[in-house]
Amino acid sequence: MTTTPTESRVMTAEEREQFERDGFVIIRNVLTPDEVAHYAAAVDRVYAEHEALGKLGPDKSLHKLSAVASCPELAGLVDHPKAFPMVWSTMGWNVHVYHSHLDVHPPIHEPKPFRFEWHQDGGRQNREIETNPRPRLSVKLAFWLSDVSEPGRGNFKVVKGSHLTNRIDGPPRRDIEWPDPEHAMEVCANAGDAVFFDRRIWHARSNNYSDLTRKVVFVGYTYRWVAIRDEAVSPTVAAGLTPVQKQLVGALDEGRVHDPIEGGDHAWGHFEKEVPLYRDLHERGLLDSSFPYLIP
């Protein structure tokens, strides 16, 4: 199931205000019931393969990196027309997917050993960049394939507005019992909803003590001049992708992208007409000049 960004949806002024204030936005009904079933079945296939090989976590969970390389059926999520506009409305057209993963967490019936899991995305970015607050650098979409409309189902946990805070209080070691940060909340969403969030927001995951299996796909986007963490998709998978999808998964094969002299400048956005997302937005009249990252 491959979607094409044909709709002219953009981030509304209200969504932009909420995103900048809170660090996240819930996008309702992104996926139809048929799409939820399709993507959940693809995730189930990958889970079954890992279960057969004995490659699940001790709690039978699966955290599989490189979502599209690991499960090509998920390619339609990277530029889904009801969610992807939030990405380019925030970061512009010179972006790609640098980090993605699919997660499956079956119900657990016994309390897990404590571990303080609150974090910001980005790893070493949070130690090596000196500004306060740190720059956004990337955003993420979480596509929910299971019902987390009630707390305690493996929900995405956030501290609203904490994307503008470089640190929160935590224990000296992650295994020392420690309360959740003040104002922490579990984000409740239905299967088919997506959560769009700033990588800087302090977040974690609730334990799944429900009777439902938690299934979700996370897709992280950053600028093309930042390295991709994901594994490359195979040539066979790349051949079935749209130009925009090829850009997003790092499989772009047009223009000067592989030129030995100018190829390195391609990711810097110097040749905008060779960047598929730029062309797509230009053709649809969506390059809003009031946002510098949406113009050459």
Rank of each mutant, 00 (worst) to 15 (best):
M1L: 11
T2C: 14
T4K: 12
E7L: 15
V10H: 13
Q18R: 07
F19H: 02
G23W: 00
E35L: 11
A37Q: 09
A37L: 04
D44K: 00
D44L: 10
R45L: 14
Y47L: 08
A48W: 01
H50W: 00
E51P: 08
L62A: 04
L62S: 01
S70T: 08
C71Q: 01
C71F: 01
P72F: 10
E73R: 09
L74N: 08
M86G: 04
M91F: 05
G92M: 09
G92L: 14
V97Q: 04
Y98T: 07
H99I: 08
D103A: 08
I108V: 15
H109L: 14
K112L: 14
P113F: 10
W118K: 06
Q120V: 12
Q120G: 06
Q120L: 10
G122K: 03
G123V: 09
G123S: 04
R124G: 13
T131F: 11
P133I: 15
R134I: 14
V139K: 10
A142K: 01
A142R: 04
V148M: 13
V148Q: 10
S149P: 04
P151D: 14
R153P: 00
G154Q: 00
N155V: 04
V158A: 12
K160S: 11
S162I: 10
N166D: 14
R167L: 14
D169H: 13
G170A: 11
P172H: 12
I176M: 11
D180N: 12
E182L: 09
E182N: 08
H183V: 01
A184W: 04
M185K: 14
A194G: 05
H203A: 03
Y209F: 13
S210K: 15
R214K: 06
K215R: 07
V216G: 05
V219R: 05
Y221T: 08
R224G: 02
R224I: 10
V226L: 13
A227M: 05
I228F: 04
R229D: 12
V233A: 03
V233M: 01
S234I: 13
T236K: 15
V237A: 03
G240F: 06
T242L: 05
P243K: 02
V244I: 10
K246W: 10
D259F: 09
G263R: 06
A267W: 04
F271T: 06
K273A: 13
L287G: 00
F291G: 02
Y293T: 08
I295M: 14
I295D: 14
